[in-house]
Simulated assay, not measured.
Amino acid sequence: MKLNGKVAVVTGGARGLGRAYALRLAQLGADIVVVDIDLDAAREFGETLSAASVMDEVKAIGRRSMGIAADLTDRAQVDAMVQTAIAEFGRIDLLVNNAGGALTPAERSAASEIPEADTRFLMDLNYMSAVFCCQAVAPVMKRQEAGVIVNTSAQSGITTYKGGKLSGYGASKAAVTTYTRYLAAELGPFGIRANCISPGVMMTARIAAKAVERGVGTADEMAAIPLRRFGVAEDCANVLEFLATDLSQYVTGQVISVCGGAVLTPY
């Protein structure tokens, strides 16, 4: 129970990686605030839950939980979400910024062609949402003189993706990566750590459903990974456990690539 008595906010927590994060943190003793634009998001891609919702799954583990539906690209909704969490639990010890994704068409994602609308959408979805959440919890953690922030980069945010695709997504995640380093430099003196997880291809229900359409998860792609497999949610949850607990008490401003060796260059 490394996080007993702690409160964690997990964005994009209603399915996929976010759900895995919420359940792992609950197993470590944390109470969980699940934030998602759709708290029933698991149903969209047929992800099977062990209870009616992720919040109920957390409660079955023996921890307290609440769900908050919010559009994190809207600062007002982010501020309201944090205020609601504080009113319910009195503190926030851990923020996991997992919400986001490469949700624009891959066929028009090359750097020389991506439409302005796609670029702005991806920056709002991946970068501004993380900024808003970090800025909303920072005063809370400063008052506590402690806290952990874990942001989400991506393989395409620390290296170029195959064929130059996903340029807008990669740029938005690269922005998150750099922002996290600045955040770590600023908040370290207050006892707050900030790091990034950078997932490779993770076979969540959503990725599996979209794999053929987006050209992700091919046999050739797997053959290029040194560990010769795609990731699963637990692979990222294992790294989150390290970053969320005192196992990483002297680690801040870092990016950990969870990719099976797909990215082997220093960053």
Rank of each mutant, 00 (worst) to 15 (best):
G62E: 13
S65N: 13
G67M: 08
L72K: 02
D74G: 10
R75S: 12
A76E: 13
Q77N: 07
Q77M: 08
Q77Y: 02
M81S: 04
V82G: 04
V82K: 05
I86T: 02
E88S: 15
G90W: 05
G90H: 12
R91A: 05
I92N: 08
I92F: 04
D93Y: 01
L94H: 00
L95H: 06
L95S: 04
V96Y: 01
N97S: 15
N98Q: 09
G100F: 00
G101F: 04
L103F: 15
L103G: 05
T104S: 12
P105C: 08
A106L: 07
A106P: 15
E107H: 14
R108S: 12
R108L: 06
S109G: 11
A110C: 12
E113M: 03
I114F: 15
P115E: 05
P115D: 06
A117M: 11
L122W: 10
M123R: 04
D124G: 14
L125E: 10
S129M: 08
V131W: 09
F132L: 09
C133T: 07
C134P: 12
Q135C: 00
V137T: 06
P139L: 00
M141F: 01
K142A: 11
K142T: 11
R143H: 06
Q144S: 15
E145H: 14
E145G: 07
A146G: 15
V150K: 05
N151C: 08
T152L: 11
T152M: 07
S153Q: 07
S153R: 01
S156V: 14
G157V: 03
I158E: 08
I158L: 08
T159P: 06
T159H: 10
T160Y: 08
K162Y: 15
K162R: 13
G164V: 00
K165N: 14
G168V: 03
G170C: 07
A171K: 00
S172E: 10
S172V: 10
A174L: 02
A174N: 06
T177Q: 12
T177I: 04
T178W: 09
T178Y: 14
T178I: 14
T178P: 03
Y179S: 08
Y179V: 11
T180W: 01
T180F: 05
R181Q: 13
Y182I: 02
A185V: 09
A194D: 07
A194W: 02
C196W: 07
I197F: 03
P199M: 03
G200T: 08
G200Y: 02
